[in-house]
């Protein structure tokens, strides 16, 4: 056999092995999470190897316990989820409201400092979040925003704006300017062009930008830890899960149910918008 055909057949087998192994490695932790969330803690301790519970031993008590408020003997994830949802929705809505005009200006208008703005956004990623978190925290304390969801929303906007501008700007740059010019000739103002033409045309990308910032805000941990640790009624799901996991008293399978509740909204949103999100993020990557 020639080298070509030997290599081809080896690679064909290897390819299947690689795909199976990678899919297993990505999926199994999530299967484990979902499955343990229905297991009684004593079953887990008795036989850790039994990942899928016997049908008659399946319990949903974990979910009741984790969702119920503290007065009802639960761990208050219902409220944590509401906090996370409020923060994430507010952050993504405000991000979009800021980013759409900015991206429009960056692709359509010439003004002093345009290229500097792009550099500013890149530079943001050179610094660890931890070093900006502390001055922000101290500054917010002075302004009275320290231990509040409002402060968290403002911080999340700053974290998501740079990538959002990048996604949206790439898309807007692809919309022919002749459409804008035609509208100008018809007597449209800048504001009308933006709201009547640019926004409807860019709606898919605007939605994926919104989803991106929702996901970042929902998943975020460090700022929530610094801002809200002391205020249990304001905890987000991420913070609540880590705080409860630090102690020994909450059973691990109940916390697994908490992890599922933390993960499911993200997986659903990602499932809905997977294509738009990945295309938005990699826009321009194939051009080298």
């Amino acid at each position: 056999m020639s080298a070509v055909s030997v290599q081809s057949s080896v690679l064909r087998v290897l390819r299947v092995v690689v795909i199976v192994a990678l899919v297993a490695a990505t999926v199994l932790p999530f299967v484990y999470m979902l499955s343990l969330s229905f297991v009684r803690i004593d079953d887990l301790l008795r036989d850790p190897l039994r990942v899928l519970p016997q049908l008659d031993r399946i319990t949903t008590e974990t979910y009741r316990a984790v969702l119920a408020s503290e007065e009802d003997g639960g761990y208050g994830f219902g409220r944590f989820m509401r906090n996370s949802a409020v923060v994430a929705v507010a952050a993504s809505a405000l991000t979009v409201m800021l980013v759409v005009p900015a991206s429009y200006a960056l692709t359509r208008l010439r003004f002093a400092g345009r290229s500097q703005v792009s550099w500013l956004f890149l530079a943001v990623y050179l610094f660890p979040t931890i070093i900006i978190a502390v001055p922000v925290f101290v500054g917010f304390q002075v302004l009275g925003l320290g231990s509040s969801l409002v402060g968290l929303v403002i911080a999340y906007i700053a974290l998501t704006v740079p990538v959002s501008v990048h996604m949206l700007r790439n898309y807007l740059a692809g919309i022919p300017e002749s459409i804008d010019e035609a509208a100008v000739i018809d007597g449209a103002s800048r504001f009308q062009i933006m709201t009547r033409i640019t926004v409807p045309l860019a709606m898919p990308t605007i939605m994926s930008t919104a989803l991106y910032s929702f996901m970042i805000a929902w998943n975020e941990f460090l700022f929530a830890l610094l801002f809200l640790s002391a205020k249990q009624d304001l905890w987000t799901v991420s913070l609540g899960l880590t705080r409860l996991a630090d102690g020994q008293e909450v059973s691990k399978t109940v916390l697994m149910a908490g992890s599922v509740l933390l993960t499911v909204p993200i997986v659903i949103l990602y499932g809905v918008a997977e294509r738009a999100l990945t295309e938005g993020l990699t826009a321009g990557a194939d051009k080298g």
Binding site: P29, M33, W218, L255, S259, L262
Partner: peptide, 17 residues
């Protein structure tokens, strides 16, 4: 799409698992 899950899933949940 499934392969991207570790990256999009909340870090708190996956580290806990």
């Amino acid at each position: 799409a499934v392969m991207l899950l570790p990256y999009v899933a909340p870090v708190v949940a996956t580290t806990f698992v």
